[in-house]
């Protein structure tokens, strides 16, 4: 059954597009240029530890966690509704949820700029019914809104797919044994949906913590996140060494959060009912 040659293109692909870039990033992060010669140095990492950059890291994590939590709170009920039994409506609803994702991510974010602007559609509507204006464009609320809006499907879809696969007989059994619907949810549905929740959290948190375009457009370049800092090092400052060190730190953060999530996932789901 083993056909090792089948994996060669994949190995080649991985080497060119994953291993080599990673090695390059690592190389840049551990070196500095002194008078035209490249020398080994940990300066770049020391620089990341400066309070001003730690502040940026902290801000990125806070905004990403906030938007992940909001996505979960909004997304779980949506996923439950979508996975409900009414089949004819279900497909249409899922479709409606997925359609906005066909549009380019940048366009959708630009659209929010027009909506949220001081003279934008939302404020015009508010003004026309005599309500006070909402000036949220270029605040961190706008950044969180942008993240939640853009990444919500990544939370809903994994939870939805896990929920739709739950064996109905388990729920029926619990009901037969006298559980009310709240108890069924707490003891059966929620634990069974945890793998979906975990992958949803990872899929929202990762792009949220690394984004640079949402904070640039909706935050008016005022809320520098780690993604903006990295973009700046590569695109404006031309300090690839520091940019690479920042990237490595970010990758470590993501790895750590994934490790944490997967452990949680195993304990709960593995030790539980599955």
């Amino acid at each position: 059954m083993k056909k090792p040659w089948l994996s060669y293109p994949y190995i080649l692909w991985m080497t060119i597009f994953i291993i080599v870039p990673l090695v390059l990033v690592l190389y840049y992060s551990l070196t500095v240029k002194v008078d035209g010669t490249v020398v080994f140095s940990l300066d770049n990492f020391a620089k990341v530890m400066q309070p001003i950059y730690l502040k940026v890291l902290w801000r990125s994590v806070v905004l990403a966690v906030a938007s992940t939590v909001i996505c979960l709170v909004l997304g779980y009920p949506v996923a439950m509704i979508l996975s409900g039994r009414d089949l004819s409506r279900k497909n249409t609803l899922v479709m409606l949820f997925v359609i906005p994702m066909w549009m380019n991510f940048l366009l959708r974010t630009y659209a929010w700029m027009t909506l949220l602007d001081r003279k934008g559609v939302i404020n015009l509507l508010l003004g026309s019914i005599g309500l006070p204006q909402a000036n949220i464009l270029y605040t961190d609320w706008a950044v969180i809104l942008g993240m939640v809006y853009n990444f919500l499907p990544f939370m809903v879809l994994p939870i939805f797919s896990v929920l739709s696969k739950i064996d109905r007989s388990l729920i029926e059994a619990a009901e037969d044994l006298g559980s009310n619907s709240f108890k069924v949810f707490i003891r059966i549905i929620f634990p069974l949906s945890l793998p979906g929740v975990v992958s949803g959290i990872t899929m929202v948190f990762m792009p949220a913590v690394t984004t640079f375009i949402i904070s640039k457009l909706l935050g008016g370049s005022q809320y520098t996140l780690i993604g903006n800092l990295i973009e700046d090092q590569f695109m404006r400052v031309y300090d690839w060494n520091f940019g690479s060190a920042l990237s490595i730190i970010m990758m470590l953060m993501i790895l750590a959060s994934m490790a944490l999530m997967s452990r949680y996932d195993k304990e709960e789901a593995g030790g539980g009912l599955i």
Partner: peptide, 21 residues
């Protein structure tokens, strides 16, 4: 000055000033 600044922009400035934002 940062708390007083609405946004840091380049080409967007034109639309924003014309639109009186």
């Amino acid at each position: 000055q940062k708390p007083l600044v609405l946004a840091y922009v380049v080409d967007e400035v034109k639309d924003m000033m014309i639109g009186e934002s």
